[in-house]
Amino acid sequence: MSSFMSASWADEVKDRINSWPDAERRATKLDDFWDWIEMVKPFVVGRLALSVRDMPPDCEADTLCLDLESGSVVTATVCNRADTEAEAVFLMAGSYTDWMALVDGYDVGKMVMYRKLMLEKGDTLQFFTAAFYWTELLAAIQSVPTAASDGKLIKV
């Protein structure tokens, strides 16, 4: 199992987003909902950076960079926020505690509504035009088995 914010974790996240939703997730919502996601995907282009504000020391990276093309992840890497912020179209950041809660299954809608993740770079109206694409992207990340940065198991 990959550790949170490691290169192998980024690879697994990429595969998961690109094959999302799995049959189980798809069945929980109307086809209308997935049709809507397909409708907005062509407009999802550029880099999304997902960052941890207070990553524990000695970790490989604090930010996941997803380069998106029509809603698919072309490359997924981990890096430090300072190295990617200028290039990112959108940058969302949260505390390490809140990221761990997300990986552990905390509701993705609440993650947004209660600002556990904040949009620290990017146009808010443009971001919300694809709102449910982003919450599903968080759900896809959440479904990847992940170990904490110290190797402790979080989610299987």
């Binding site: 609440k110 709102a131 449910f132």
Partner: peptide
């Protein structure tokens, strides 16, 4: 929470982020 529509987070998430702006 379980009773609300998932699309609730659209307008109310937007409000939360505009509040932050």
């Amino acid at each position: 929470w379980g009773y609300i529509q998932e699309t609730f987070v659209g307008p109310f998430g937007l409000l939360a982020y505009l509040t932050d702006d």
